[in-house]
Design a protein around this nucleic acid. Sequence first.
DNA 1: CTAGAGTAACTGACGAGTCAGTTACTTCGG
DNA 2: CCGAAGTAACTGACTCGTCAGTTACTCTAG
Lengths: 224, 224
Amino acid sequence: MTGGTGEAAPGARRRMPHARRREQLLQVALEEFGRRGYHLTQMEHVAAAARVSKALLYQHFASKEELFAEITETIVGELTARLNTAVLAAHGSADGIRAMIRVLFDYATEEPDAWALVVRHLDKPEVGLELRELRDRLGTAFADLLLHRRRADPALSAAALEVNERRARLLVPLMYGSMLSMVSWWLEHPDTPRERAEQMAVEFIWLGLDRLRSGERLPKAPAG
Amino acid sequence: MTGGTGEAAPGARRRMPHARRREQLLQVALEEFGRRGYHLTQMEHVAAAARVSKALLYQHFASKEELFAEITETIVGELTARLNTAVLAAHGSADGIRAMIRVLFDYATEEPDAWALVVRHLDKPEVGLELRELRDRLGTAFADLLLHRRRADPALSAAALEVNERRARLLVPLMYGSMLSMVSWWLEHPDTPRERAEQMAVEFIWLGLDRLRSGERLPKAPAG
DNA sequence: CTAGAGTAACTGACGAGTCAGTTACTTCGG
DNA sequence: CCGAAGTAACTGACTCGTCAGTTACTCTAG
């Protein structure tokens, strides 16, 4: 040990230029928030994990909330962009579904901390209002997918379109919920091959989507 | 209901027997935790909402955590019991799906605060470990449903059974996620008739379940 | 008059945010 | 090449508000 805590690098420079330090802090904070959640993460945790004093952290970010907000904004921006391009590149509905699912699996794999942060705070109105945004964005991406497909189908009358639009909106939460749930489940079961989980989700959701145009109905069960 | 909980009554009796006060405190705490979430709810909030001092609250519950735990235990017990009977009473898979969805919609309608508390804390390992229990219970209820149905089907070989069991496990998170998501969505869109939301969920999920036995497969899309 | 329902006022610890001071790096006159 | 002046990165030790949990007391029903 040569004097200071060199960490991995032996003669590592501890002082860093402003911008680089800022990036490092954002990265570390993302991990901490993702692991412990907003409330249980203290600014000291973040500072300690970055091998830095809390004061320095406050020279980069005015408050805990601001730090968290900046992180979530980045995540939402990134994920939104990916979803946008995925949906735009898709030609059919099944293709679009598959593309969106792939985006989610990719992101969860590539950025596990960011993913953890998102799912942890998605249903907390208290903090991270940007995450509501993400949920809405996911929903509208679905809606776009559904509506775009139907608009291309000239067989539908305006009235039928209206009816189906309502039904499409009802389908959104179902698809949304099952996708996120599947990704989370898969992360907790690494032994399951990703392809299998992905394919299952695609089929499951695509069938639900397909119902929309076929008008196929389930016989109403008598119920108890 | 004359007298009972003082609340609005001006010269109302404030002293209550131990057991009744305890129940009131549990009820009030449930609302507070449901609205603000665990971390943002202070014991003083609960006490104030019950028109009582914080010290009295501590004569009934040893700690904030214990209070929260007792509440969640009750909720999980109640919901679990309802799901159990619903699944047991079901004769077929579609019937079982419908029954479970009804249980969830019923519960969310009858006990909105309890429901809010559940969805708020479901994916937070930090607090309320009992809620993991609920998620597992939901999952196993699904699994029971699927496996019971298949066991009754003598056409399946042991090997096929094994394969399908794996696929069944993959279906669980999809159904689980879509159900919860749909209920939450419906609560935020009260203009949508409940029956429509319910029926849509049943159809969507039942189709996914039905895939399991029919072995129907979606042509693998080429992907970008 | 007394047991237990109830409270106001308190404590101790924690955690966000601050500040005076220190250390490393850069620059520039000589 | 050198060292002093200047500056940006960085820190230890604080303040101050908040909140879980306690203590010592009052009040009232029976």
